[in-house]
Write a protein that binds this DNA or RNA. Sequence first.
DNA 1: CAAGCGCTAGACGGATCGGTCTATGATGCT
DNA 2: AGCATCATAGACCGATCCGTCTAGCGCTTG
Lengths: 211, 211
Amino acid sequence: MMLFVSTDGAVRTPSAASASEAAAIHPTRLRLLQVATRLFQQRGYHAVGLAEILALSETPKGSLYHHFPGGKQELAEACITRISASTMAALDDASASGADIIAFLQKLGAESAAWLERTDWRDGSLLAVVGQEHGGGDGPLADAVRIAYQRIEMRLAKWLMLEGVAVARARDIAATIIAAHEGAMLLARCRRDNTPVSLTTAMLCAMVERG
Amino acid sequence: MMLFVSTDGAVRTPSAASASEAAAIHPTRLRLLQVATRLFQQRGYHAVGLAEILALSETPKGSLYHHFPGGKQELAEACITRISASTMAALDDASASGADIIAFLQKLGAESAAWLERTDWRDGSLLAVVGQEHGGGDGPLADAVRIAYQRIEMRLAKWLMLEGVAVARARDIAATIIAAHEGAMLLARCRRDNTPVSLTTAMLCAMVERG
DNA sequence: CAAGCGCTAGACGGATCGGTCTATGATGCT
DNA sequence: AGCATCATAGACCGATCCGTCTAGCGCTTG
């Protein structure tokens, strides 16, 4: 249950992608997406050069521009929509399995903390990093982040409504969860210390419980 | 009452700096700090080139390396410590003026929202942007952000203790406020919509009130 | 005045950036 | 076999990156 980050960015030995995408995605394309996502979520869009992405994924430049004619920007866009898709899928799974929101929040907090520690606080949220760099702008990347957050919020809100929360309140709670969780990940990363994540998780649980 | 952002980045007509620093800071140095802070908090460290900073501040390259021998990195470090200092000063002022935390949180939320809108959601939190880019790393910039967050958190906690909150709880609340507020600013910026800020403010107030 | 210093001014350079281009390897179809 | 298509491979390019360096301005000081 990891939201906002990609955990499959192993280098040269791409872990098996989720079944749905393994069927359709070209191996080179997948490798590029995994490595690029990993690097972008560590350092941001502008801080990572194509040279590094190509070297770590052992891919020649020609292949990149074959699979992503739009170059670096299209690659980053694809990374964002891929993270967005996997996050929504995770939310749907959790919702379908009948878990309640409180359990979900606690699991999210625990696994986020574990992930941060496991990466030595190097990896953050791709959406947050790119979002910070592009803010309220109007480029393709800013749009991709905007849409990703919107869709994730909608899934979360839908789930909350399934649990009986009123429509307007569900959307509010969803947005609050996303904002607080992203902020907690950031602060935890900067401080190399997970307490912001657990504190925020507790606060979010309290908010949801009070309705 | 703005935390985490610089509002004085006017170009070529530097608004009067706070009295304390106007006395000591060389005009050119101040202009560089203002313009650089503004640009960094809009787009991040790596996305902003020296050329743009120099052009907007109408400063030749020689001046930059005279005032900041360490180049771009030292300039960014100075921007971070300057934001950190002004944020701590604002917290001290608010605390000394006898306001309570709830009033502070509401004012912070309202003014942050107004600021986001006024900049057309272009400007974000400098600490957050640079923090995202450098994560838990160990460069001078990562350290500067880490220290800045730590100091701000301590000031906030101190204020909370003045209001009777227990030591440990005060530090927890402070960290939670910072994390949630940063996350709210990010999400609001990405969505070009301030509701995450007001929602988060409400949640934080509820948390503080329950103690 | 001459010397020294703080600061401005911008030319210059090596490195790296993202992107284009041509050539070639691999695969499948007829 | 011959052809077409997908994909790899990397040389190459102009632009931009950050940083160094020398020259000179203006002010104070001896």
